[in-house]
């Protein structure tokens, strides 16, 4: 056996670059940094406060007043920010807790598997509205714990969708071919290495489309908390404006547009992410 060629000559071979460490690849590093920055901003910057109101008065017989619509964009935008921020923060809980729940549910020990299955099925099978109220009362009943309405929204929404996500992760894990597990055994990989290096990297791309759907669904479920918890989200804002002005076409039309404004780019980003992590199946 002749000595192996210097490693650099191969790692810079024609196809090289595709398998560099991800953080050395600007095409991957920049989006990751942007996302982290976005999270930092979302987590640290509270939604701007202010009443949801307008000074513009539209004529009673006007079906749609352009001037009135423009005047309520700013307050609705504040509500949209609150809703979107809560959804994104909740979804980080969903992504992490969902995986944890999926792994617990696959545990070899019944003492772990059964409670996990119970919690997942219980939360999945009850309405999120009930959970908002239940959790709010629970927080009130416990001394020394005080959570704001938005924090309760984030927690409940995150946990609720985590139970859905855990089922998606489970399907993704099941979709990893048996041969991959067998190869891991044949190489004598530890269970931890098998999960972190073989199974999860292959399961997550399979799960991304479903998780993307859940992100959009969570965004649409977030306003449910508005009236119950008093979260000043976008539908709360639209309702407040309707209450003040007796006009509902403009605020609710704009609220719908506001959801599109967030969910369409989110869906696009998820598709980009799917394309990026996809690999050719063998």
């Amino acid at each position: 056996m002749t000595a192996a060629p210097p490693s650099t000559s191969i790692s810079e071979a024609p196809a090289g670059g595709r398998h560099r460490r991800w953080y050395r690849d600007p095409g991957r590093l920049v989006p990751v940094l942007l996302v982290l920055l976005g999270f930092a901003v979302l987590a640290s910057v509270e939604a701007p406060r202010g009443r949801f109101r307008t000074d513009v008065i539209a004529g009673r017989d006007e079906a749609f007043s352009f001037e009135f619509a423009v005047s309520i964009i700013a307050p609705l935008g504040r509500g949209l920010y609150t809703t979107a921020r809560a959804t994104v923060l909740a979804f980080t809980i969903t992504l992490v807790l969902g995986l944890v729940l999926a792994l617990l549910r696959r545990s070899g020990s019944r003492l772990v598997r059964w409670p996990a299955a119970f919690v997942i099925e219980f939360i999945r099978s009850t309405p999120i509205l009930v959970q908002f109220i239940f959790f709010q009362q629970l927080v009130r009943a416990i001394d020394g714990v005080s959570l704001g309405a938005v924090q309760i929204l984030i927690l409940v929404l995150g946990v609720h969708y985590a139970t859905y996500a855990s089922e998606a992760y489970r399907a993704g894990i099941d979709s990893v071919p048996k041969g991959q597990w067998e190869a891991a055994i044949a190489l004598n990989l530890s269970p931890l290495t098998t999960w972190t290096r073989i199974v999860i990297p292959q399961a997550v791309p399979n799960v991304l489309p479903t998780l993307g759907n859940y992100l959009v669904a969570a965004l649409k479920d977030a306003p449910i908390a508005g009236p119950v918890l008093g979260v000043p989200g976008i539908l709360f804002a639209a309702t407040a404006i309707r209450g003040d002005t007796f006009r509902q076409v403009e605020p609710f039309l704009l609220a719908g547009a506001g959801f599109l404004l967030v969910s369409l780019p989110a869906a696009w980003l998820v598709r980009r992410l799917e394309a990026r992590v996809a690999y050719e199946r063998t």
Partner: peptide, 17 residues
């Protein structure tokens, strides 16, 4: 012990190396 499989069972998300 080592084993080579009929259907290779390579890890598709990693390079050959």
């Amino acid at each position: 012990i080592g084993m080579v499989f009929q259907h290779f069972n390579l890890f598709p998300h990693m390079s050959a190396l």
